[in-house]
């Protein structure tokens, strides 16, 4: 379990308690500036704060051990040099002291999971937005982490690519990994997450199963819009007149 205990980051988060479980997808949602990215990077161990992984303080773990366990995909994801896709993905192996053969295997698996085999030699600069998002996620997967924390991995993706990526996150969760995603699309959170954490002004406004948590009253309170849910369980859409 990955937990934040009364996590406070000055100016960003105020006493946030969150518990992420293995084997399920947790969506972190909230308006702009609510502290979603700060929470996710804190859970990845990048800020000072009381976060524990299976009752062990992240701050007390060696950077390399933490990096082997928690894979983090930051927002945006610019790449400074025009690396090839395969080279980019291999960077995910940096925390591991493994043999070249093990690295090769992990990189090949990550490439094929993200359907990037044919693009392995392509420079990152020539990729489309969707291909780039997949390549960046493949970098995280190549590290074979037990936890995958991704900050808006679905931003700038068309419907088909977003759905493919969500399916992959589901497969990761089914394989026993913990998955946490910052998202803006409440319908995606409603349909694809097992657990949702709603942040507002640096505090947890609500948390629980999406069906019971993301009710119209909460949406009105946190986002300030009148909206209601359409459709059936698992295929909901948010209607905002």
């Amino acid at each position: 379990m990955l937990r934040a205990h009364a996590l406070t980051v000055p100016g960003r988060l105020h006493g946030v308690d969150v518990a992420l479980q293995r084997g399920r997808i947790t969506a972190i949602v909230g308006p702009n500036g609510a502290g979603k990215s700060t929470l996710l990077s804190s859970l990845a161990g990048l800020t000072t704060g009381d976060v524990t992984l299976d009752d062990r303080a992240l701050a007390a773990m060696a950077g390399r051990d933490r990096a082997q366990t928690i894979g983090f995909l930051p927002q945006g994801g610019d790449v400074a040099w025009n690396l090839s896709v395969a080279t980019l993905v291999r960077l995910g192996r940096l925390p591991h002291r493994s043999t070249r053969a093990t690295d090769d295997r992990a990189v090949a698996a990550a490439l094929s999971d993200m359907a990037l085999d044919a693009l392995a030699a392509r420079p990152v600069g020539t990729l489309s937005g969707g291909e780039r998002a997949r390549a960046l996620l493949a970098r995280v997967l190549a590290g074979e982490p037990g936890w995958v924390l991704a900050d808006e991995p679905l931003a700038n993706l068309d419907l088909a690519h977003a759905r493919a990526l969500l399916r992959h996150f589901r497969r990761l969760a089914d394989a026993g990994k913990g998955v946490a995603l910052v998202m803006h699309d409440l319908a995606q959170a409603m349909n694809h997450a097992d657990h949702v954490v709603v942040l507002d002004k640096g505090r947890v406004a609500a948390s629980g199963a999406p069906e019971t948590t993301l009710d119209p009253a909460l949406v009105a309170r946190v986002w300030g819009i009148e909206a209601h849910w359409l459709g059936d369980h698992g295929a909901r859409a948010l209607a905002c007149p």
């Binding site: 990077s41 994801g77 960077l91 925390p95």
Partner: peptide, 13 residues
Amino acid sequence: ALSLGDAAARSLG
């Protein structure tokens, strides 16, 4: 690791 930016580099240890 820094090719991927500050946050990703730190997350890689």
